[in-house]
Design a protein around this nucleic acid. Structure first.
Length: 252
DNA sequence: GAGTCGTGGAT
DNA sequence: TATCCAAGACT
């Protein structure tokens, strides 16, 4: 839930989610559409499908218990390098390079002397993080969560609180006079008129309906025929929607 | 490796 | 009001 999503927005959904499905087995027993519905407006709804699939995999491969092994975590749907490292570190106290957007920004500033990291994680970045990670397992786990919190609460993307920063004295970016970002132009996420917006509109109709909806109700929320048809097909392709025999659409 | 995939609070 | 961007994963 936290992937690319602010913590404050996740908290209420997370609470409802665990109230309804306390264990992986509880979630795994539900239709995937229920996961999509409970996901609400968190965004990137394919994550709901993957979380549901991960719950099933945990039941099938790990007896219903979340594995503590990094490789086993990484093999779960929706779990990438970051999430596997985060769970292994924060839940199980292990030593892994935890490289999320917060850590990347802290390292870019303190070590790299630049305001912001590159668009995507680089090999050099991962190497820097690996070298800085303390050797001791428990200390490494604490270090990882500490750097992450520093990035989330102090070394923020906009208006960093440098006067409150515990490592300001060793920060290369501060020493350089806080130079502004001057790398390649960062990709701006266009939104209005995109397939993403269209998909969001369509899925919202399915999510908010009690049962299958007629195509006319989907037609009503997006004017561009070609784009709407393409987006709906994409939702079906992704497993976020299903077409019934009667020609209606619903959550899977 | 670059594109794609939602949503909404903050500035 | 427009832009930024947030505990990334997958193709």
């Amino acid at each position: 839930m936290l992937q690319q999503t602010p913590v404050a927005r996740v908290l209420p959904v997370h609470e409802q989610w665990l109230d309804r499905w306390p264990t992986p087995a509880d979630l795994a027993a539900e239709p995937t559409g229920e996961a999509v519905r409970m996901w609400g407006r968190l965004g990137y709804p394919r994550r709901a499908l993957r979380l549901h699939a991960a719950a099933q995999a945990i039941v099938e491969r790990h007896g219903g218990e979340v594995p503590d092994d990094h490789a086993a975590l990484l093999a779960l749907p929706g779990v990438g390098e970051y999430t596997a490292a985060a769970v292994a570190s924060f839940a199980f106290g292990q030593r892994h390079v935890v490289l999320d957007t917060n850590v990347r920004r802290v390292l870019a500033r303190t070590v790299g002397g630049v305001e912001l990291p590159a668009q995507h994680v680089t090999k050099a970045e991962r190497e820097t993080a690996r070298e800085l990670l303390p050797d001791d397992e428990a200390t490494a786990a604490t270090w990882s969560v500490a750097v992450m919190e520093l990035g989330a609460l102090v070394c923020t993307a906009a208006r960093p609180r440098c006067t409150e920063c515990p490592v300001a004295s060793l920060c290369a970016w501060r020493a350089a006079g806080h130079p502004a970002y001057d790398g390649p132009p960062r990709k701006v996420q266009t939104w209005a008129g995109t397939d993403r917006q269209c998909r969001g509109r369509l899925l919202a109709v399915l999510r908010d309906a009690d049962g299958p909806v007629h195509l006319s109700r989907l037609d009503a929320v997006w004017a561009d025929d070609a784009q709407r048809v393409r987006s709906l097909a994409g939702l079906v392709e992704d497993g976020l929607a299903v077409r019934t025999d009667a020609g209606t659409y619903a959550l899977p």
